[in-house]
Design a protein around this nucleic acid. Structure first.
Lengths: 350, 350
DNA sequence: ATTAGCACTCGAAAAAGGCGAGTGCCAAAA
DNA sequence: TTTTGGCACTCGCCTTTTTCGAGTGCTAAT
């Protein structure tokens, strides 16, 4: 017994219906809503087959069927057809993303915001993967005696800074000298090759006494390492509470607790490969239910895609919603957001 | 009929019991838990009186009593006795707050984090009130042709920066010149006196053509204004979902939505007067239930206190929890956090 | 003023019942 | 062999009913 064409159509209909109603779909209801040339009895037989094949399941004996993870998988892989986005909506998305932007992270914030509002789900973006990136600039800026701002600029266009304490007696001029020396040595160096030793060696030939330098260099080093940290932007977490699946406070809390742990989310997204599905201009990866190895996300689906900064560097944006998600709509939206994001990043990074 | 001593003791017992059990307290249960020299009948009479006076109320006829807002108010104003904090806990709080600190905002983050974990409720902190503060420094830092970082330092010790676009042809030297001119003119100026015109007038005598300046000055201006914005740090929002009062998703969402609107929270806290209660070293303000003019917080209490940056500038930290809150414990904790925060700020700002 | 006693209340939890969408299976029709 | 009408059966959900008990107010005695 295989998944013939008719079964596919039926599965598709089941997923579609379940996605919109959030209620197990039964044979009669299916017939009512679609004009199949089938009786409910035949449909029942087909549904029994689909169940044996593992594509759908029953919450309990006398209920309708809901798609299993495998069913959703089949659906997203070969059954659904991706929506097209109206010009009006494209304009809207573009303007939302391009508004008030100074740097890449602004774009990311705008993008998550847009995605979350448009889809009604939780959206996320991660700063570009920095392991593959290198340092382009490092500046020490004297704020007042004893305090300086370390500004780190990475090849991905990410700018981070950190306020640090320095010895009180260091002068403006000395700080500048250190700044220039360190930058000269380190700029262009991949982040993972930068160690406390590389940093220290950069100031060997300056006129500043070693004793003054240690603290400054250590702070510079930690600032660089801090810039190496992946940042996660999550938007719309509260929307979880509007989703029927998470009507139960305990369940909702489980999910929200996981999502609130930025490190956990970042780590997971980062470990996901990049085996995205590519369809024409679109390109995305979907994780469904149990496929997501994060506590509390068993009933969720996770759609991610990749934006680019230059040729080699990339970051992820994504949507987290219930398995029962409007995949075709969400995918079209996340893809257009990705495209817009890429364009805007090019504008910024020239 | 007045609130005599016995009634006070009873009210106190009712609040204490309700706080711990979250269930309406009845006459017999009260007798069981406290060793009053009273019969339940007398107690019932007293409770009827307390109800007439408005200090307690019945959820429904055949249930026990719960404190009314007025009852809680009486409790916090004159009935409860504030806990003392153990030395071990003090040490813990101190080390949590002082760990990994570079600037004032780090302290605030640590403080909210500590408060939230310690109390189990939502905690909040706001950056120092900037209206009363002035600009101490403004630096333009060239990142690359066409991009610069504007660093704004305020008297409260708050450092903010913003990446902006500038004309491509501006050189490092020119940017420095602008930077110095603007800073010279503006430093020491109260933030609310800074306008686009003040900013522009500062560069009248520089050698740089006006046509180059407009964009830069505008960006500098918006960066300053952006620094003027109150930042809110909220920590532990998810804990809401563990509180019995918010076991209902709809209710929880109402509260979380309000809390997620930083502007709303900031605005409200900012408008609260400073009529704090002072008791020895402690000093705090409590808003209970309906007294809080924020949607969704009708069943909450809001405890705030003030930390200081120097003599004139101050900011707020606070706790949001259910009305049924362990006031004495929370107040002792928030006060010790406030004290620690003040000490650490002094260390940073010299 | 206090208290023992008692009838009464009323929400919450448990038990009972009916509804109905859904199911599987069979035997007849295509 | 596939499809279909028919039918008995299931079982979660919803509503109604019952039971239970902590709590109350009131009264009469202490």
């Amino acid at each position: 017994m295989a998944l013939d064409d008719r079964k596919k159509v039926i599965l598709q209909a089941i997923v579609d219906d379940y996605v919109t109603t959030c209620e197990p779909v039964g044979s009669k209801a299916l017939i009512d809503r679609h004009n199949f040339t089938l009786s409910s009895a035949t449909l029942r037989n087909e549904m029994a087959d689909l169940e044996k094949l593992g594509y759908i399941e029953k919450p309990h004996t006398s209920a309708g069927r809901i798609p299993s993870d495998k069913g959703y998988r089949e659906y997203v892989d070969s059954l659904m057809h991706i929506d097209t986005i109206s010009t009006a909506e494209k304009k809207d998305i573009e303007s939302r993303i391009a508004t008030g932007v100074g740097e890449v992270t602004d774009l990311l914030k705008n993008a998550t915001n847009t995605l979350s509002t448009k889809t009604g789900y939780v959206s996320l973006a991660m700063t570009p993967v920095l392991k593959k990136s290198y340092l382009t600039q490092l500046k020490l800026l004297m704020i007042e005696p004893g305090r300086a701002l370390v500004v780190v600029v990475l090849s991905a266009g990410v700018v981070k800074d950190k306020l640090v304490r320095i010895p009180n007696f260091l002068t403006d001029v000395q700080v500048n000298e250190i700044s220039r020396a360190v930058e000269k040595q380190l700029s262009g160096m991949p982040l993972d090759e930068i160690t406390l030793i590389t940093v220290a060696s950069s100031v060997k030939n300056t006129s500043i006494p070693d004793s003054f330098l240690n603290q400054v260099l250590y702070e510079a080093y930690t600032a660089i390492k801090q810039a190496d940290k992946l940042d996660v932007y999550l938007e719309g977490k509260n929307r979880i509470l509007s989703i029927p699946e998470f009507n139960d406070v305990g369940r909702a809390k489980g999910l929200l607790d996981t999502l609130s742990d930025d490190g956990m989310v970042a780590g997971y997204v980062n470990e996901l490969g990049t085996e995205e599905i590519t369809e024409g201009d679109d390109s995305y990866m979907i994780r469904i239910g149990q496929e997501i190895a994060l506590e509390g996300l068993e009933d969720c689906s996770f759609i991610t895609t990749t934006y680019k900064v230059g040729d080699k560097i990339s970051g992820n944006i994504g949507i987290i919603g219930p398995k029962r998600m409007e995949y075709s709509k969400v995918i079209s939206q996340i893809n257009f957001v990705r495209k817009t994001l890429n364009d805007e990043i090019k504008k910024i990074n020239g």
